[in-house]
Design a protein around this nucleic acid. Structure first.
Lengths: 354, 354
DNA sequence: ATGAAAGCGCTAACAG
DNA sequence: CTGTTAGCGCTTTCAT
């Protein structure tokens, strides 16, 4: 009798009132025979109401199908208790993040106001919208903006970038240690006997640069700098496929490919499979982000996971801390990523140079 | 003497926040030497302000970096001028739809309030949030809810479902003619000489039922009822892969597969390619929705397109019409889909039965 | 053309 | 514990 009935009742109440005007606190108070202020206290669970009053207000509200008006509440409150979130539709990882943010925000008593980044609604517009709603803090998923306007915005309210790279000292960043994730991937491959490991990178972004750096460092540490190779890629499947094609065309195949992210890795995977390369028998492939696409049973991609729920929690925590004026030591929180071994990596083939 | 001083002091005391106070219309008016009301008129481009006043207010606002407070504006206006949108992160098609909705809403002078459907934030919660923002109409992307609560909600405000199937007479539906899309796909394949065409369906949803029906009808019309076959699938890649595996295991391969949607088709594609089946030489594959995934150059999937921008426009139009109280003849608007021929379909192999 | 005043629905300070 | 009184920032009559 949990969700089904409860929800049904809740929503039914929404519409019980007359079609013309939705009931206000005044109406509820009148029906319960108390003042609007007292009704308000009861509704929002604030202290200072007798059990009797509480009971009457609750029933009156239920009968009327009362629902508080968010706009009015936000306006009257000193704090709007809402966090603005800019996300990119399309980004699989953002879906997980937003999900976590809903949880964390609710737990912290905050509302979430969403604004999407789409071709016709860029990050700037998204931020403006959110600002106009007077949300108290801004959460930008995967932003890599270097424009000065973000800094200006950050002067007005806490701004937290999740899974992106921004260097402004006024902006908090929650992300994971990309070089470390790469290290784990390389370590894993090396342990499986791979030496010819190429990296299909993610293009010009800062995150891409980080992962590239992690790749280089890890290869060097294993004494494989000679065998390393970086192929220009991108964020999408298409780039991965193109990069894989390039690898194939060159003839001298590596034994493993580490891609910038899962999307890119899937592109690589696809191109390889089409070319008749057996993964992982002939070649291993590793992605990054552990998005739902990596988990699909037929893809079953070995990848580096970022713990979206944890990042979401930290993000909301950080936002709340900033809003409370607490001093935070570290502008940047860097979480440890963790390798998730699935089916696209295996022992390296015997090779001439072995 | 204006009451500026006293009020200013009071307010300054109240807002000892870190960020200082954002300018209000009152501030803009004061700086421009006009009343708040007049400033309001100028800001929102309402008539009733001299060119001179207009000019001064505009510059004052610019200097102050004034931005209207959406919450307050919505509260004061009789109509909130905002449309609530519930979408599913993850759904590639919704990204295109939301993009179009932003465009259309802006053109129509409406705000968009987004609420995502995620594991921890289901459609019911999403709708509640939106309702609490007092948006004037609700736009549900891809909803197939059969619960009575939606009907209850629709009693209170216009509800428009896009690309879904809901039977309530109070709910508008904008979708495309799925059976017709299927027909186009089948016609295309038949024209290429295919006869053994199987359909991997989308499961229990109404949209899936529609497409399944379209498949059956089209096959019958071509006299291919005997060759038809429907394999249970689902909405995601995984289901497509599983269905393809089933087809492969059975030995007697068809020459073409029409999948429920692009995701499913990509799963099919993947499983086929892994099994060494050459697409489209050995087998043709068709998807549905023309999402970005179908357009990826290495997937290059023949699919049925739904014209998201058009649907978005119609949706907003419909919402506005309902809000204006206009009588709309057709509760359901059904758009013609169109086949997009790409690289996964080709002439059928010569077959024994030919 | 302009301004004063009255709200929108709610919260919050202060009396009783 | 409860009601009264002020607003939150903006729009909207209704005078001037």
């Amino acid at each position: 009798v949990r969700d089904g009935d409860g929800k049904e009742n809740r929503v039914t109440q929404l519409t019980n009132g007359r079609a013309g005007r939705r009931p206000t606190l005044e109406d509820v108070g009148a029906r319960a025979g108390v003042s609007r202020a007292l009704a308000s206290r009861v509704i929002r669970g604030a202290p200072g109401a007798s059990a009797q009053a509480r009971e009457r207000v609750v029933t009156a509200a239920a009968e009327l199908g009362y629902r508080p008006d968010t706009r009015a509440r936000l306006l009257a409150q000193r704090s709007s208790q809402s966090l603005g979130v800019v996300f990119g539709m399309q980004h699989a990882f953002h879906a997980a993040l937003v999900d976590g943010l809903y949880d964390a925000a609710e737990a912290g008593g905050y509302e979430l106001v969403l604004s999407a980044r789409t071709p016709s609604h860029d990050e700037g517009r998204a931020v403006e919208t959110l600002l106009d709603y007077r949300c108290e803090a801004l959460i930008l998923l995967g932003s890599e903006t270097r424009s000065p306007w973000l800094a200006a915005v950050a002067a007005g309210l806490p701004v937290i970038v999740v899974g992106g790279r921004v260097r402004d000292p006024a902006i908090d960043v929650i992300r994971s240690a990309d070089p470390d994730g790469m290290r784990q991937a390389i370590d894993h491959l090396v342990a499986l006997g791979h030496r010819q490991i190429v990296h299909v990178d993610g293009g010009h972004g800062l995150t891409s640069a980080d992962r590239r750096r992690g790749y280089r460092t890890a290869m060097r540490r294993h004494g494989l700098a000679e065998h390393g190779r970086i192929i220009p890629g991108g964020e999408a499947e298409e780039s991965g496929a193109a990069a894989a094609q390039q690898i194939l065309d060159e003839g001298a195949l590596p034994t493993a490919v580490v891609a910038y992210n899962d999307d890119c890795a899937v592109g690589v995977l696809d191109a390889l499979v089409r070319a008749g390369v057996d993964v992982p028998a002939d070649m291993s492939v590793v992605g990054y982000d552990d998005t739902w696409i990596a988990r699909l049973s037929h893809i079953n991609l070995t990848t580096v996971g970022q713990n979206a729920p944890r990042m979401a929690n930290l993000t909301v925590e950080r936002a709340v801390a900033r809003l409370a004026g607490e001093d935070v030591a570290d502008r940047e929180v860097i979480l440890p990523p963790h390798l998730i071994v699935r089916g696209t990596t295996g022992v390296a083939q015997g090779r001439a140079e072995f």
